[in-house]
Design a protein around this nucleic acid. Structure first.
Lengths: 143, 143
DNA sequence: GTAGGTGCAAATCGTTTGCAGTACA
DNA sequence: TGTACTGCAAACGATTTGCACCTAC
C-alpha cells in the first residue's frame, strides 16, 4: 500500500504549500508509476501531458515532497537519485545492477543492531540506509 | 587494523600497475588520515607536498584503489563520495550527520537476510550498503 | 493584492574524456 | 623502448541559483 495522490496533495496543503497544476502533474506522474524514477525520467513523463513544465520545477517539487517524506529517495549505487511514492513504514531496496529494477522489502532486521550501536558508541541514531545490489533473474538469463 | 601503505603499493604492483610518485603521494595521504576524505579533500592534502599533481590523477588513482578494494568507498547521504583505507573484512558505517565523524563496525548481520532475499526474489546478490546516520555524543552535547 | 511559485538562462559542482607529452619498468 | 601514466583543457550530466514574470489563495 502506497500513499494516494489525494493524501499527498492534502499533506502539501496542510503544510502551507500552494497546489499548482505543475505540482499536481508531478505528483500524478510519480503516483502512477510503480517504479523508481530519476528526476530526468520523471521530467520526461510529466512533459507528456504538461509540455511547458520546467525541469527546475520538477526538482523543486521533488525536494518538497522528499522533505515531507511523501516520496522516498533512493541512492542507487552511482551518483543519481531516484524517487518513488513513499510506502508507509520503513523499507529497504534490492537493486538490479544491470537493468535498474528495484524491489522493496520491509522488516525490522536492524533494530537490535541499532540499539547495540547506540549503547556502544553513544550515538543518537536517526536513520539508516540499507540497500542490496545484485542481478535480477532476467539479467542473469541474459548473460 | 588497516592496510599498511606497503601492502597497498605491493598490491598495486602485483596487479601490473606502475608505481609513480603521484600514486605514492595519494596512497600516503589517504593512509595517513584516520578519516574518510572526499576526492577534493584528498586532492588538497596531496598538493601540500606534491603541488603539481592534477585532480584527474587523484580520481584515477582512487578509481584503481577502489577497484582493487584497497580503499573503501562511503556514500555518505548526499551526492558525494569519500574514501578511506580499507579495513580487512566487510564493514559498515555509522555517520554523524552534524560533524561527519565516521565509525566503522563489522559483523555479518545481513547474511541470513541476504539468503532469504535470494530465495524469494531470485536475485543474485552481489553486495550491500549499510549505513547508519545519527549524531555523535559531542554533537548531542553541543545542542 | 501579495507571497509564493514558475520558467528561463546561466552558474556551479563533481566527474570524465581526448590528447599530446612524459616517465616507469 | 614501449606502454602505461600524467596533466591540461574541455566536455559532461546533474543540480542550483538569480531574476523577472505569473498565479493560487
Amino acid at each position: 500500500m502506497r500513499l494516494s495522490e489525494k493524501k499527498i496533495t492534502a499533506s502539501l496543503k496542510r503544510h502551507g504549500y500552494k497546489l499548482t497544476p505543475q505540482r499536481r502533474a508531478v505528483i500524478g506522474a510519480i503516483a502512477s508509476s510503480p517504479d523508481h524514477l530519476t528526476t530526468t525520467a520523471l521530467y520526461q513523463k510529466v512533459r507528456q501531458d504538461h509540455p511547458a513544465i520546467g525541469l527546475v520545477t520538477v526538482y523543486r517539487t521533488l525536494d518538497i515532497l522528499a522533505r515531507l517524506e511523501l516520496i522516498c529517495e533512493l541512492h542507487a549505487g552511482g551518483s543519481c537519485r531516484s524517487y518513488t511514492i513513499a510506502a508507509p513504514g520503513h523499507h529497504h531496496h534490492l537493486i538490479c545492477a544491470d537493468c535498474g529494477e528495484v524491489i522493496d522489502f520491509s522488516g525490522h532486521y536492524l533494530t537490535e543492531l541499532e540499539a547495540r550501536l547506540c549503547r556502544e558508541t553513544g550515538f543518537e541514531i536517526e536513520g539508516h540506509l540499507l540497500e542490496f545490489i545484485g542481478r535480477c533473474q532476467d539479467c542473469q538469463r541474459a548473460t
